[in-house]
Design a binder for these strands. Structure first.
Lengths: 205, 205
DNA sequence: GTCTATAGTCGGATAGAC
DNA sequence: GTCTATCCGACTATAGAC
């Protein structure tokens, strides 16, 4: 099988194994999860997993492929809506924040892959999973800010949203942290303001 | 010992163990590193580690404490310099980017802790390690953008820089990625522009 | 396709010689 | 303070019954 298999090709049991493996790998990382633990979550014995996957590595790869599948749709829709560049940016940031906020497993798996993935896996991830949406993001950035480096802007757009979500668990212990800051629409509003007007965009002097 | 011990209290051997453990925990995570592996890096036997640390958990905690120690100084200096709020912001972002770019182990350990740390550990991390610099960041944000939410701004400032560094390994596979994007001063310049003027700050129509 | 049983390895941790 | 030797449980993976 290729490095990122088509999830449709898995049997029902294999799919169930993958679905139960996803939150475990996301929460505890590859080395932190045992085959027994995954089997217990599914309700089968560890040996049975080896009937559906040749080894732990292949199971992990399959879980990643499934978790990353179909992430394109929600984004593509938000990207294709009409309006001024600024309106499209606002809608995209709100949609992106909502999607990422909802799918914690996806975020954690992505973070872990950025840390642990080797060159080959990152290349596949970039080209098979992220390329199209990243291009959409970059094109939108270019239309809002012609003449700027669209690549850097696209990273900044995604990063602003994702870092607010990444730091969610520790923010309540930092000065000024409030529960409202976990609200996706609050984060999206803040990020949109910074992107369109900079830090001073919300100032009331 | 407390959850974050004073690194000064460790013996020379204990310090050597910690220094060799830091890059291993950073690169492979807690579960991905064995006591034997750490011992081999130090050039001793695994049993010897247990003379200096009661168990793996304590060793990991010690490694974190050492890696996070003295992170305050470079930031405090950059924060205390005079100038207009905009000048101080620019200098701080450049300094912060340079510091974080240099210390990959610190960044990885922080990321892993945000993912894997429980409430108690995150609380200690926030209050013992980050509180002062976060306050400095927030105060600077407030002076640049009075009336805004300083907490959200401080997270955005740190997040913009850190996310560009986090995505370093995958950016070359994404459209528009160039080697210059790994240059800390390029990242710092881009982030500063966005923070001060928004995405349009670099536009040449 | 799922099971039991188990091989073979590696993990954290301890005992006790030096 | 470091070592050798070892315990014992957990790990990945396989063999073979059903």
């Amino acid at each position: 099988m290729t490095i990122l298999n088509n999830p449709k090709e898995f049997s029902e049991t294999a799919l169930s194994i993958l679905e139960h493996a996803i939150p475990l790998f996301a929460e505890k990382g590859y080395a932190g999860v045992s085959m027994r633990e995954i089997a217990q979550a599914v309700g089968i014995r560890a040996a049975t997993i080896y009937h559906h996957f040749p080894n732990k590595e292949a199971l992990h790869l399959g879980a990643m492929a499934l978790a990353f599948a179909d992430k394109a749709e929600g984004m593509a829709q938000a990207l294709s809506e009409p309006g001024t560049p600024q309106d499209r940016l606002r809608r995209l940031i709100f949609r992106f924040t909502e999607l990422m906020s909802r799918d914690r497993n996806f975020r954690l798996l992505l973070q872990r892959e950025l840390m642990d993935g080797d060159e080959a896996r990152l290349k596949v991830l970039a080209e098979k999973v992220f390329k199209d949406q990243f291009n959409g993001l970059a094109e939108l950035a270019a239309s809002v800010s012609p003449g700027c480096d669209a690549h850097l802007l696209a990273i900044s757009m995604a990063g602003l949203v994702l870092y607010h979500l990444e730091t969610g668990p520790i923010r309540k212990f930092l000065p000024g942290g409030r529960v409202e800051h976990d609200d996706p629409s609050v984060i999206a509003g803040h990020v949109t303001t910074i992107l369109l007007h900079g830090m001073g965009g919300c100032a009331k002097p």
